[in-house]
Design a binder for these strands. Structure first.
Lengths: 187, 187
DNA sequence: GCATTAACGTGATTTAGGTCACAAATTATC
DNA sequence: GATAATTTGTGACCTAAATCACGTTAATGC
């Protein structure tokens, strides 16, 4: 399982065995069951999670009670409520497990410590954050410029693996359309 | 003008005079006129710009020819086509000036050099990128959970300064609604 | 293995917002 | 300062997608 984290980091910066052990020592392992919440609206957000097994989603519940999925996270993905975590505020999002899951998680303090001890990790996080920005900007443009069907097709292209692991209802919620509309699209 | 850049950085990391001179030496100054393009779809994106004067917008033109505004940038804001700049690809966005503008701009190479020479600048860029992520995620949730009127009200709250500098047509394009709908909202 | 819950499909109806068209008002530009 | 260009408002009409309401099928949990 550790290997997944190591490979994820080494896609961006090479690590010696010792360095990876140092990295690892700043993380903890968490195991969660399907339906379990790891972040809840209104509560603190102590960790960022790197998923090594399973599938999670982060979502926002609006004032009318409707739920909107911001992110899915499967193996090799990071997930947290960014606003809560980085600004040390209470969560505005919820995160729960769609499948039994295992993560490596880290606190803000340990993340900063790690970056101070191993400069290249700061570069790693900057690269990840940059890639995240690009993806988010593309999602915004997609929401603004594409209709339901185009967004669904794009989702299939971007995340072919997820289609078979996630109920259509949740994909609809991620795409910002109703489950009925999505049902009528998918032929 | 330099002072705006310095203050922007010092909001996050303190700098000595020498350090700031080092920072500054990696940037160049650009002056642009209203309607001038500084990034164009299909061309390389050599710089990130820090705006010290004026107002710019980045926008995407979809396949049906409609334009969607991704970002405005006035004094104290950063702007580029992230995907083009960081991945060294051709631009998918356009950036032009809504007012005569002046920026400090930096290449990817100089940015990396600067981070290597002055570690705290990497921390600075990471903080900025993180704040950007949070803002983008909120915008996505806003697009998914709020109607036109709510998004317009939110825009006014977030960017009260911009309301009087930007035609409503462009605000509509930023919010993802038609100018006619916005016109009917604003009483 | 059965009961409960969640997922999915589909019709009928509603609605927020888009599109088209035109006129008035405001702002740039030479 | 006159002319052109842009911005704004508003009516009439249209449409993509939401909502409501069923029934059916597939998972899931004990």
């Amino acid at each position: 399982m550790e290997e997944i984290l190591r490979q994820q980091i080494e896609k961006i910066v090479p690590l010696t065995d010792d360095e990876f052990q140092l990295v690892l020592s700043h993380f903890s392992v968490g195991k969660y069951k399907k339906h379990q919440y790891i972040v809840q609206q209104g509560n603190p957000v102590p960790y960022v999670h790197f998923v090594v097994k399973g599938l999670l989603k982060s979502f926002y519940i609006d004032k009318s009670g409707k739920s909107h999925i911001l992110q899915f996270a499967m193996e090799d993905w990071w997930i947290t409520d960014n606003q809560g975590f980085y600004n040390e505020q209470n969560a505005t999002l919820n995160i729960d497990c769609l499948e039994d899951a295992q993560t490596y998680y880290i606190t803000l303090e340990n993340r900063e410590k790690l970056c101070a001890e191993l400069q290249k990790m700061e570069f790693f996080f900057l690269q990840k954050m940059t890639a995240g920005n690009i993806a988010l900007q593309n999602r915004i443009l997609s929401l603004m410029s594409k209709n339901s069907e185009e967004r669904y097709i794009q989702f299939i292209q971007l995340y072919p693996d997820l289609i078979h692991r996630i109920p259509k209802t949740l994909i609809a919620s991620y795409l910002g359309i109703s489950r009925e509309t999505l049902s009528r699209l998918s032929h």
